[in-house]
Design a protein around this nucleic acid. Structure first.
Lengths: 249, 249
DNA sequence: AATATTTTATGAATCATATTCATAATGCCC
DNA sequence: GGGCATTATGAATATGATTCATAAAATATT
């Protein structure tokens, strides 16, 4: 039925419009100042129409967070397909994540806020389901890299499953985002340049898993060089963001 | 001036009362259902009085989160002073954290929610300062263990500072809490028993740092045995919580 | 001890926003 | 082109945080 198709498409378009505007407003006024009524007005629709799309404000926030994950996928895919040792591809994914976090901090705050139980559980079940679905490709990508590495014999600790090999890295990255997000926390503990620390520790973890090629942990220069190489070769368009975010102290 | 002292003390007592009641209400009704007016009523004070203590609701939540950190310190101290290799002491701190997260999940959700930028930044600067201050003893404890380990020659990678040696572990733990907190996320990625994974990956990380005594990553039995030994020797009173939370699959 | 002054406590009123739902408008089909 | 189903509207409602003029209590002054 063509009519139904068109209606569905138009509905989806309007939803995208709402999300676009919401995102613009968040960038302009901050996450906390997003107002449903104002969003409706700026989108030139009635409040009730907005609520035809989102069961509540939290539902909208989760939808917004979901979309940014999808947007980042392109970066991750490039990293996973990079022709380099699988260990380096995994690091490239990590670098992509960090570059993104630095270039779009408000966006990252949103994702963090959305995965807070308070927000997450307030969203509709369908919306949560969609968010989980959107996160799966990244999971598959990472697992795929791990599985390929094991198959090639890159990982000496082959008793571990792909998910066991990658979940630590995932948690570590996620955790560093949290620590960075809590303003002042790292300073209070005299922890400088958090994302550089993340890199060292990621290398330590991968070394610990016996993942070739090993990286000398004392060799900070080599680590930086690898990170820079990843930026230049895989994410040349983000090089500027990387420079802005990590000024020479 | 004795009068001022007494007033200060009584003010602090009332604040503690508010926090006690707030906590009881959160445990009973959930984090989302905490209402300032109801809290005032249940504390038998006027709403305005409550606001003499807390600049806003977020301020109260951060205060509450701060208090639970202080409560946990006793566990961490026991772990740090345990007479065992320094690596095992660090793991004991990690185990304490996990036991606590499992035995008081609502409490943990609170801490996570409070460190969300949205909540954190809404709290008063003084309250944030106090929260950071309260987290320092844990930091010192962990750094102290790391420094002692390096001094004893337990860590082959001695070029790294104590904070470099521990921040990865910290981030990994924090991150795993986040992943556990996002209901359904780990299931969606087929990641079972997250805290056991945290343990394996913590071992991998410490191995990677060359931290003696190394743990064989394939030897799941040895890892479990060590974890159980920690619970029995260091946190016997929490053994029950540990059993409840990790049922044999 | 009475009175003035300062400090602290109160809770009804205010304000800010999210959410609903009776009504209106629109679009589809015969 | 009229009847029916679907969709959109936004004023009204609901919720709950926060304020602030006023009262009460505590302290200082005479």
């Amino acid at each position: 039925m063509g009519v139904q198709d068109r209606k569905k498409r138009q509905f989806a378009e309007r939803e995208a419009l709402f999300l676009d505007r919401a995102w613009a407003m968040i960038e302009r006024d901050g996450l906390l100042n997003l107002q449903m009524a104002r969003l409706a007005a700026e989108s030139e629709y009635a409040v009730g129409t907005l609520y035809l799309h989102f069961s509540c404000k939290e539902d909208l926030l989760v939808a917004l967070a979901t979309r940014t994950v999808a947007q980042r996928m392109e970066l991750y895919e490039r990293a996973a397909l990079w022709s380099a040792p699988h260990r380096h591809r995994l690091l490239a994914i990590l670098v992509a994540e960090v570059l993104y976090a630095q270039s779009a901090p408000e966006n990252f705050r949103l994702v963090q806020y959305a995965s807070t139980p308070a927000v997450w559980m307030a969203a509709s079940a369908a919306r949560r389901e969609a968010a989980l679905e959107a996160s799966k490709p990244l999971g598959s990508l990472v697992m795929g890299v791990a599985a390929a590495a094991v198959a090639r014999g890159d990982v000496s600790c082959s008793a571990l499953q792909p998910h066991e090999l990658t979940s630590g890295l995932w948690a570590m990255t996620e955790g560093m985002h949290v620590l960075v997000g809590a303003a002042g926390l790292l300073d209070a503990h005299s922890v400088p340049r958090p994302y550089q620390l993340l890199l060292v520790n990621a290398h330590a973890l991968l070394n610990g898993l016996g993942w070739q090629p090993l990286m000398a942990l004392e060799d900070a220069a080599a680590q930086t060089a690898l990170a820079e190489r990843i930026v230049l070769e895989v994410f040349p368009e983000l090089a500027q963001a990387a420079c802005d975010a990590q000024p020479q102290e």
